[in-house]
């Protein structure tokens, strides 16, 4: 759908970026919009499904002209980036929607922001530049509240068990860690974050012997280490 829309823009070079493009037959084409938001503090305890439900009602409260899927049971088309595990906070969650009527990015940001609590603040709204499939890495900031020992990660391989659809499998955590460094008493964990290889920072911390901590996802990147947009 994204590429379709780009084609449309090429065909109608005059259309304003923040406006819905219209074809000559006057059919409004849904226009993709990316919403960057946070999931902070107590919201680390709510699931991805809860976020979805909350966003759905919030979009309605905010009066955003969201594009609905067709069919028997129409629902607003919403695609989220990289799910966040329960227990982790984030300042870089992304939601893609499409809008069916003109509304400026600024207005979407203000309206949606007012329909959510500050723990789920909307920080940016723009036209997507990359695809969710491009996401390759994520950076986490860990504040430890108890002693930890990173030396376990010095080994060549760090095998851990993981639940998967095929039952329990063993994976090498090291393959998924790009780097770990300590900055101002905080542990910055850089890990893989694509669909096949996803590093759960909580798992890393468990190995270091520290289970009381705060983890915030700070940024996500593509394969070329460009900040996701």
């Amino acid at each position: 759908m994204l590429s379709q829309n780009i084609t449309q823009q090429v065909l109608h070079p005059n259309s304003h970026e923040d406006m819905c493009e219209q074809t000559s037959r006057n059919i409004v084409l849904p226009k993709p919009v990316r919403i960057k938001f946070e999931k902070m503090n107590v919201l680390k305890f709510i699931s991805h499904l809860d976020v979805t439900r909350t966003m759905k009602t919030a979009l309605t409260r905010a009066g955003i002209p969201v594009w609905y899927t067709e069919g028997f049971n129409p629902h607003p088309k919403m695609i989220f980036s990289l799910p966040l595990s329960i227990g982790t906070e984030s300042v870089c969650e992304y939601l893609d929607i499409k809008i069916t009527e003109p509304m400026s990015h600024e207005e979407i940001k203000t309206r949606l922001g007012a329909a959510l609590t500050s723990d789920m603040a909307v920080t940016e709204v723009y036209s997507p530049k990359m695809k969710f499939q491009d996401i390759a890495y994520a950076l986490y900031e860990v504040t430890p509240y108890e002693p930890y020992d990173l030396s376990v990660l010095d080994a060549e391989k760090v095998m851990v068990k993981k639940h998967s659809k095929k039952g329990e499998i063993e994976i090498d955590l090291k393959e998924r860690i790009k780097s770990i460094e300590i900055k101002d008493g905080k542990i910055m964990i850089f890990g893989r974050a694509d669909q096949l290889n996803y590093l759960n920072p909580e798992q890393v911390m468990a190995l270091t012997g520290c289970t009381d901590h705060r983890i915030i996802r700070k940024e996500i990147y593509n394969e070329r280490m460009q900040i996701f947009r």
Binding site: I46, T117, D119
Partner: peptide, 9 residues
């Protein structure tokens, strides 16, 4: 835990 956090809209 979502039962105990409050803070809802």
């Amino acid at each position: 835990p979502g039962r105990y956090i409050g803070g809802e809209y």
